[in-house]
Design a binder for these strands. Structure first.
Lengths: 196, 196, 196, 196
DNA sequence: TCTTAACCGAGACGGTACGTCCAGTCTTGTA
DNA sequence: TACAAGACTGGACGTACCGTCTCGGTTAAGA
């Protein structure tokens, strides 16, 4: 990706487009290299040349196709509010069009290290990075004495949302994000963040 | 009752045994109906007859093969301590032999509703049920005024562990269970549960 | 071939028929397993199951499709005449519809031991066997003192015909068979066999 | 002449060398344009530029690599002896290092007219031409009244050897060349040429 | 000396076919 | 009649090459 040897932009665009179409129409499980190549009018080798695994192609197709996976982490000075905003943004993404796809990819990456890397890099790392930065600012203030490390806080906040996406996706809504945000805020001793 | 299935008992046992062996030796992704049938000395039809999907077979093989997936939820009267004990037990299961398998199954059930049901029933529901009962007892006490509903608490507690299993399995350890337990306890206002 | 495990006669008939059609229409070089399977409406595996190599399939298709490859070796008591009759029969076969196919197969068997065996068994051995028997009778008579062994005689008789098929197929005709038969007869001292 | 091809000389040499190596090491069937280009450090286009077909390349590589394919036809005045010498020389070539290669090429030329031409020109024509000249001398003598035309004689002599190369290469030896030479001599009425 | 066009290596491109694995269904013969 | 065995059609895998087609980067010719 971003490889300077890349020659035929049109072939690759066709691949991503066809892959995205198949994902949209028949689900990510229906994506096969063979099928994408056929739909894109492209040789299989061309796909194998530029994507290391089926999963990497899926991630690419999702990310390239949409900017909607973006999560903004803002700093309003109120950590609890910022946390809530972020979790609501996450909920919106995972309950949106790409929710089932994200769940499938998260599942599929359990068996595909290439996909794991691609998915981490494209989906998780940006948000984790941003929120880590936000936490750094927060730690500069007082009242963070008993806090665990960043990753624990991140998993405490994100974990419930993704877990529910995977196990009971029908129960995902913004209220859940509010609840989780409130609970995490209270766990961190941000008392004013208590819901209501 | 004159159960016509009686004759199949040994065939089914052989299937489960072979499936478990393949999972153990080569991972769950290496399990195919064809391969299990061959290893079990069983006709493919026999597998299709008794299991609705490949995933259901995987769950059955895991559950039947081992009682280790059991999580006991006890009531010592100290909710925070019980929570911690439960999460440690969960961590032990998901960092144990079956961890990768559980992760794979959780992933695979994203594309297989039969597997979702089987997995829920075999893995999640028992623990959720037990802990729901434990929470019912707790709610009978005072100091639970601001609590969210059971499912939110459950996902807040379980979510971080399973999420980390799926995304950064190398960072799972008992300390993480302790941290999460402490944070959840604090979020629920069980102040004495704060770690340290 | 002749395997008692064989189940679906219709699938195999379809394979042979399609293979024969492709050979006839587009030449033996155009035969591919994939193409035959497609044309026959058969899974590739079914072909791989019953034929060890592409070449064996070609031979089977040719032999199964036609009885014309048969060469009768008769014993009129006149060895020279019988030889001539046989060579004429050979010429008719190799200048007929299947000539180019036979040439291709003879070529292809240079790189495919399975094909070599199949071709030998189906094409060469029957004639060689018959003519060997004819020679045995002849050797029982007098005047065979200086004769070389059977195989040398066979190659002396057949060799020129097949060699010309491979190298200058346009020059094959019955006259050539007559000439070769006459020369071989003279080489064997069957003076009355001299042409004219 | 200002030959623009001059610069390509080294590339062409590398191609022939690599092709010969592959033929030697892994057999002619293992030669592919792609593989030769890779081994020779040459662009595929360069091969397509200078050789019309894979077969032409094979012939070139064989001929260029070795002068051993040469057959000398001498005129000692004794036609039978000269014939025997020639057939022995042929046997030496086709039982030598290049035997299987020659057989494969003879086979492959059944499907490749370009190869047929190249092979004829490089392998058969020189010997046929020389021996045709030798026969012309012989015909100037007496005792050739009943002879068939040159090509028939040539095929009668060469055919058995090449045919055996293709069909039963393990049975090729000098004795066979002697036998064939003797029989052909007798067929032509060169009585003194009879073996023994 | 400086273009400039042919030729070079490299390898991407759309394709076809390979031989294998497995899915899910269907068939045969045994106990 | 349930079973093992495995054949069936079919789809996909990942690889090897095909022959064509750009790419830049040397040459070596004539301007």
């Amino acid at each position: 990706m971003g490889d300077p040897r890349r020659r035929s932009a049109s072939a690759q665009a066709a691949v991503l487009r066809s892959c995205a179409e198949i994902m949209r129409d028949r689900g990510p499980a229906a994506v096969s290299i063979e099928g994408v190549a056929r739909a894109a009018g492209v040789g299989k080798q061309t796909i194998y040349r530029w994507w290391p695994s089926r999963g990497a192609l899926l991630v690419d197709a999702m990310v390239a196709g949409r900017g909607e996976v973006e999560i903004d982490v803002v700093d309003t000075g109120d950590l609890a509010a910022d946390l809530r905003a972020m979790l609501v943004a996450v909920i919106r993404v995972i309950t949106g069009e790409h929710g089932p796809l994200l769940a499938s990819l998260l599942g599929e990456m359990q068996q595909d290290v290439g996909l794991r890397a691609a998915f981490d890099e494209a989906i998780f790392e940006p948000v984790r990075g941003s929120y880590r930065a936000r936490l750094r600012t927060a730690r500069a203030s007082s009242g963070t004495a008993g806090w665990p490390d960043d990753d624990t806080i991140l998993d405490l906040a994100f974990g419930p949302l993704w877990f529910r996406l995977l196990t009971r996706p029908g129960h995902l809504d913004e209220g859940f994000a509010y609840d989780v945000a409130g609970l995490v805020a209270r766990a961190l001793g941000l008392e004013d963040a208590a819901r209501g």
